[in-house]
Each structure stands twice: as structure tokens, then as C-alpha cells.
């Protein structure tokens, strides 16, 4: 049962690098107010990420993984703390600036794909380009290219419900990639897929990481996936857990 040691891997040390980190989060907290009660989803998370890293974020359900990823993806704002992306403070950006960050700098991949059901694969992938102000023609051209990259060059005009789960997630990945962001954030991207398909999606992420030098942060439940990444961040109760406290042995 020596494999079980890997089931609960702990937070890896930061890499020793001289270049400035592209992500620098300091003391992030997030409090959800639900009527009288407050939920402290993040309680002071500090984190640095360098260009080209592939990081897995793990931790039990409810430990704050999705909350952290949403803040890093500029989908949500922290209650307190600082978040710098490429040295620019994100917490103080206005709505339009945040929209631009989401559009240009970060690609987000969701567990449930989140494709527009009435739009074809091509239109779904072209969406961020449309919001970036590209012409319809140019957007479609680039979207088709990106769909070819994820292996769906022959499924351009399929609607989401005409595609398998794995194919839908590929469309979503193409959508995340299409504006050529330097960072891809994925929240349990294989959570809705069977293990074989999940492996294929992970293989795609690895390829993108290797061949395009994309920075990847993937939230996952799957210890095997975590084991494949270069660095692991383990969350527990809204904090990064550094020591390997829960090593289990047979």
C-alpha cells in the first residue's frame, strides 16, 4: 500500500527562480456571508507562481480550492489581501480591466465545461475573440485553428449536446486557449469525465504545457493527476498546508 503515501501529497516548496513571479498572491482571505453566519473560505493564502509552471491544487472538498482559483482567475474578488498579476494589482482594478484580464491573460476551464448550448463548437471557441473585438471572420478562423489543436478539427459545427463529455471539455479548453493567455486555470477539469477520458484531457494539458509553455494551475481530486504535476499546493480549511501531517502507512 505504499501508493497511499501519494494519495495525500503535501505542498511542494517554491521553485528557486530569479525571474519575477507572474502570480503573486499575499494573504488572500475570502469570507462568504450567509445571513448571520460567515464562512471563511480562505483565511490568508499566500502564493507565488512562475511562468511555465504546472501546479496542482489539492485538498478536501470545502477546503477553498475553487474559491482560490476563482480569485486567481479574476472571476471573483478577495475579501482582503493582495493579488498581483504580472506585477499589477488585480484587487484594485475596475470592471472593464478585470474583463480584459479574463479575456486576454487567463483562460478558465470549468468542471462542467460551461459551453453555450445553442452555439456550435466553433461559435463557443470564437466567443472570447468576439469580446476581444475581432471580426467575425477572423474569430472563426482562429477558433477553427484552436479546435484543430485540441483534436476537434472535424467537429467545428457540432452543438455541445452532439459531443461527448471529453469532446466538450476539449472545446472548453480551446476556448480558454484561443486568446493565447499565458495562464490556464482549470477547476477539476476531469471531474465530470470517466477515467479514460480524464487521462486524455490531462494528456492534452501536458502537451499544451510542454509545447506551448503555458502556465497551468489545475484543481483536482485525483492523486494521480496531482502526482503528474511539477508542484502541489495543498489546501486545508482555507489555508495552505505545508507539513506532511497525514502521511498514512499500511
Amino acid at each position: 500500500m505504499s501508493e497511499l503515501v501519494n494519495v495525500y501529497p503535501s505542498t511542494s516548496p517554491e521553485p528557486q527562480r530569479d525571474d519575477p513571479p507572474i502570480i503573486e498572491a499575499t494573504n488572500l482571505t475570502k469570507v462568504y456571508k450567509m445571513g448571520e453566519t460567515e464562512v471563511h473560505a480562505l483565511r490568508g493564502v499566500s502564493l507565488r507562481v512562475w511562468k511555465g509552471e504546472m501546479i496542482s491544487v489539492i485538498g478536501q472538498s470545502g477546503s477553498g480550492k475553487s474559491t482560490l482559483l476563482a480569485i486567481l482567475g479574476a472571476l471573483d474578488v478577495p475579501t482582503s489581501g493582495s493579488y498581483k498579476l504580472d506585477g499589477r494589482e488585480v484587487a484594485s482594478m475596475n470592471d472593464d480591466q478585470l474583463a480584459e484580464i479574463r479575456n486576454q491573460r487567463i483562460g478558465f476551464v470549468f468542471q462542467k465545461f460551461n459551453l453555450l448550448a445553442r452555439n456550435t463548437a466553433l461559435a463557443n471557441v470564437a466567443l472570447p475573440l468576439a469580446y476581444a473585438g475581432l471580426s467575425d471572420r477572423e474569430a472563426k478562423r482562429r477558433a477553427a485553428e484552436m479546435l484543430a489543436v485540441v483534436g476537434l478539427g472535424d467537429r467545428l459545427h457540432h452543438l455541445p449536446n452532439q459531443l461527448s463529455g471529453g469532446q466538450q471539455q476539449r472545446v472548453a479548453i480551446a476556448r480558454a486557449l484561443v486568446n493565447q493567455p499565458s495562464i490556464i486555470l482549470a477547476d477539476e477539469p476531469t471531474g465530470n469525465l470517466d477515467s479514460v477520458t480524464g487521462k486524455e484531457i490531462m494528456a492534452l494539458f501536458h502537451t499544451l504545457h510542454r509545447e506551448r509553455g503555458i502556465t497551468l494551475i489545475i484543481v483536482t481530486h485525483d492523486p494521480n493527476i496531482a502526482a503528474q504535476s511539477e508542484r502541489i499546493i495543498r489546501l486545508k480549511d482555507g489555508l495552505i498546508e505545508y507539513a506532511a501531517q497525514e502521511v498514512q502507512t499500511a
Partner: peptide, 10 residues
């Protein structure tokens, strides 16, 4: 939410 997540402005 999705539209905004991929960069739609207000």
C-alpha cells in the same frame, strides 16, 4: 456569468 468569464464587459 460565462460570457463575463471569457471577457464580456459590463
Amino acid at each position: 456569468g460565462l460570457r463575463k468569464a471569457v471577457g464580456a464587459k459590463k
